[in-house]
């Protein structure tokens, strides 16, 4: 990229955070579906990260994060604080914006 480059991995730095697979239940009545993965040091962090990464547009009512062996599920009673806040972010959806008359392909 640039003419100078430097080594960046710090010797003695933290081990890379483990990978977690993320499963989201989109609505009640549907099964959890795999949506992707992320990195986090532990399950609690993984859940927080999954909520922020994969449910910014109210895509889910429940999240599971799965490390190599164990499944951790977001508990149902935390649901409100966990998922409601995305409800008012209408500006995240393209239909929030008025497309001026005559403008195509947007």
């Amino acid at each position: 990229m640039s003419e100078y480059s430097e080594p960046t991995s710090q010797p003695g730095g933290a081990p890379p955070a483990p990978l977690w697979e993320v499963f989201v239940r989109a609505r009640r009545g549907l099964a959890h579906t795999h949506v992707g993965s992320l990195h986090a040091a532990d399950a609690e962090l993984a859940l927080h990260n999954a909520r922020d990464l994969y449910t910014r547009r109210q895509e889910g009512v429940s999240i599971w994060v799965l490390p190599a062996a164990a499944i951790t599920a977001s508990s149902p009673d935390e649901k409100d604080a966990f998922f409601d806040p995305a409800a008012d972010k209408v500006y995240r959806h393209p239909t929030f914006y008025e497309v001026p008359e005559g403008a195509a392909h947007l």
Partner: peptide, 11 residues
């Protein structure tokens, strides 16, 4: 400090 945390703080 992490890309994930960028997203959390923005939220």
């Amino acid at each position: 400090p992490e890309m994930e945390e960028d997203i959390a703080l923005a939220n």
